[in-house]
Design a protein around this nucleic acid. Structure first.
Length: 663
RNA sequence: GCCGCCAUAGCUCAGAUGGUAGAGCAAUUCACUCGUAAUGAAUAGGUCCACGGUUCAAUUCCGUGUGGCGGCUCCA
């Protein structure tokens, strides 16, 4: 048969053979350079048997996909070590993931950090023994026999399609049901580290058993591993929870409540600047600003459908206390109360889980004609959601947050244009802040599901509009069927935090449902009443999450326009303090957030303090400067600028702020 | 919510097989008046997260709760 090799010479091979046999015959050293291969577009390892002509591309060790292969092999090594040390451990699954791998085990006692060390030692032994990974393809009957009574493996097997090729990989005494591919032997990758243990439900289903998951990572070289570990350490320093404390940006207090953010003065500056920035953009796009209260009647949310449908995600409703007392006197139990509330027999108030019902009521408070549309109502609206306690943390996952929310009421034929404008806004925001590392998700409906409201034809048009809008944005996006909300398709912006976790920030959603539920209408050119379409959009998502991500993005060193303190005046000695005070006054008058640090500390120390607060400009004044009426400028980068007159320094800083420049 | 780990001064952390505790930084005061990342000294600072239990005695051991961290899951 003929084997085409894009990287080298084609091979003519007599009869069948595994890739290993075929390539080793050619060049023994080849196996050192390549980890596995791709044959006919599929990843295969060197154990794959070729039976007819094929095109085989070899995957070098430094290719990105190589990591997925050897990390998966490493998860087998992990499982092998665990089984040696804990023979009663049941194996579940063990895939490679981005930057690492894990394996889930069912064990009586959870693993301790001590266990982890021992497991690492045993893994090193497995690596040293350099067992060959052997692939065995079997029939379903053979597979069942091999698996025996291993429950998780049986379940995995049962879910594999009838016509699926079943394969096992064996290395030394260890066998695991596995699709592969794998590297050739356990000795090929020596640089790994186990990182953590965590509970994980079998198949992510909380009604099933909680297993013990061990996370680890592996690299082809020692340098790459060390570099990765160093990167993780570095990332920890950018963590917004740490910086939020150091820079006094926000505080979360257990007496106030889990997931409720207190914005400290420094954080409030950042937030206010961002809000001013977006408000200016909104005015430019014809939005109208509104204000609405934090609560609304249960009936409002019955109409919108938020209550009781999403009840689990909300703070419980409040009911007037005399009414409660009366119910209690009548012998009403808590269970009765809940069902009466759900049935709508009792009214009460709810902390708003979303801003849309209030905005809808503003829209509906007067008659609209097609000439008014689109109506765009914007509000920094604070909403409250009862997130699960285990999911809360920092500013990125909270229970009370302020969305930079807006609702657009428009005619169906205006949807495409409005979507485009929304995305334009997101693009401006992300561009201004230098956030280039985001991905766009277009959530489409699942063609096999009937949970969606609205006519299919409208959906088709809206989905097409989303697709087009995303395309015109000029960044790569993924279409994700089944990810649409039940009421309409959406476009989400997802960014990664320093630890690689993804967060959804901005979102733009088309909605056919709420206009229907609230009976919204406008008078068309034809004299008939028509139903508007709504678009929900929040380019930041929430101020809390956005600022959290932004803190990490800038590692706390905000660009001048956002910096809580933009400049610190540092008089060198006491005799310069008076001049320093004047400089401060002039800067304040120019609207610059400035502080004077005339403490009786050395200049070095005060520079260090300003540096640690990540203040963009340090204005230093000693004898020379006082004499000339100047200030020396040190940037937080450590760079020194030439001395400027105070007026020039003010002009320079004001200019940088206006440009929204970094420094 | 579930599994594991954790909670000591404003912050970062040390500590005792059970006898109520320490460091560095920050703060305050004093001296120093300094030219681009930590001047020196002194002082003050604690319900050792909360509530129960065991014990002569609990910050330490046990239980429960609250909160934090790492995951799982959910996110209109």
């Amino acid at each position: 048969m003929l084997i085409k090799v894009p990287q080298g010479q084609d091979i003519e091979y007599a009869g069948e053979g595994t890739l290993k046999e075929i390539f080793v015959e050619l060049d023994k050293g080849l196996l050192k350079k390549y980890i596995a291969a791709r044959a006919e577009g599929e990843h295969v390892d060197f154990h794959t048997r070729l039976r007819s002509d094929a095109e085989v591309e070899l995957i070098p060790w430094d290719a990105e996909e190589a990591a997925w292969i050897y990390r998966h092999s490493m998860s087998h090594v992990l499982a092998q070590a665990v089984v040696r040390l804990f023979p009663e451990a049941q194996l579940a699954i063990g895939p490679a993931i981005e930057d690492g791998f894990y394996y889930d085990f069912d064990v009586e006692e959870p693993f301790t950090p001590e266990d982890l060390k021992n497991i690492e030692k045993e893994m090193k032994r497995v690596i040293k023994q350099n067992h060959k990974f052997e692939r065995v393809e079997v029939s379903r009957e053979q597979a069942l026999e091999k698996i025996g009574d291993a429950t998780y493996k049986n379940e995995l097997l049962a879910d594999l399609a009838e016509d699926q090729t079943l394969s096992f990989y064996q290395d030394g005494e260890f066998v695991d049901l596995c699709r592969g591919p794998h590297m050739l032997g356990t000795g090929q990758v020596k640089h790994f580290k186990l990182l953590s243990v965590a509970g994980a439900y079998w198949r992510g289903d909380e009604s099933r058993k909680m297993l013990q998951r061990i996370y680890g990572t592996a690299f082809a070289t020692r340098e790459a591993l060390d570099q990765h570990i160093a990167m993780l350490e570095e990332a920890k320093k950018r963590d917004h929870r740490l910086l939020g404390k150091q820079l006094e940006l926000f505080h979360i207090d257990e007496e106030v409540g889990q997931g409720l953010v207190l914005w400290m003065p420094n954080g409030a500056v950042v937030r206010t600047e961002l809000q001013n920035f977006i408000s200016a953009e909104l005015r430019r796009q014809g939005y109208k600003q509104v204000y609405t209260p934090h609560i609304g009647k249960l009936d409002l949310y019955r109409t919108s459908g938020h209550f009781p449908y999403y009840q689990d995600g909300q703070y419980p409703p409040f009911i007037e206390k005399d009414h409660l007392r009366k119910l209690a006197d009548e012998g009403c139990s808590c269970g009765d109360l809940a069902s009466q509330m759900e049935a709508g027999d009792i009214d009460g108030y709810l902390l708003k889980p979303m801003n849309c019902p209030h905005h809808i009521k503003i829209f509906a408070s007067k008659a609209h004609s097609y000439r008014d549309l689109p109506v765009r109502l914007a509000e920094f609206g604070t909403v409250y959601r009862w997130e699960q306690s285990g999911e809360i943390g920092g500013m990125t996952r909270v229970r009370g947050f302020t969305q930079d929310d807006a609702h657009l009421f428009c005619m169906e034929e205006q949807v495409a244009e409005e979507l485009l404008q929304c995305l334009e806004l997101v693009k401006i925001i992300f561009g201004t802040l230098g956030m280039a590392d985001y991905r766009v998700r277009v959530g489409l409906r699942d063609p096999d599901s009937s949970k969606y409201v609205g006519e299919p034809a409208k959906w088709d048009r809206a989905e097409e509009a989303c697709r087009q809008a995303a395309e015109s944005l000029g960044v790569p996006f993924s279409e994700e069927p089944g990810e649409a909300a039940f009421y309409g398709p959406k476009i989400d912006f997802v960014v990664k935090d320093v630890v690689g976790r993804e967060w959804q920030l901005g979102t733009v959603q088309v909605d056919y449902n709420l206009p229907e539920r609230f009976g919204l209408e406008y008078a068309g050119a034809d004299g008939q009443m028509h139903r508007p379409v709504m678009i929900h959009r929040a380019p930041f998502g929430s101020m809390e999450r956005f600022v959290g991500v932004l803190i990490e993005h800038f590692a706390g060193a905000f660009p001048v326009w956002l910096a809580p303190v933009q400049a610190v005046v540092l008089p060198i000695a006491e005799r310069h303090a008076e001049f320093g005070a004047e400089v401060r006054k002039e800067l304040l008058a120019a609207g610059i957030r400035v502080e004077l640090d005339a403490a009786s500390e050395t200049l070095n120390k005060r520079i260090r303090q300003a540096q640690m607060k990540k203040v963009p400009y340090m204005l230093i004044a000693g004898d020379r400067e006082v004499e000339e009426g100047q200030v020396s400028i040190r940037l937080r980068s450590g760079e020194n600028l030439d001395a400027l007159s105070v007026a020039d320094a003010v002009a320079m800083m004001t200019e940088k702020v206006a440009q929204k420049a970094e420094v």
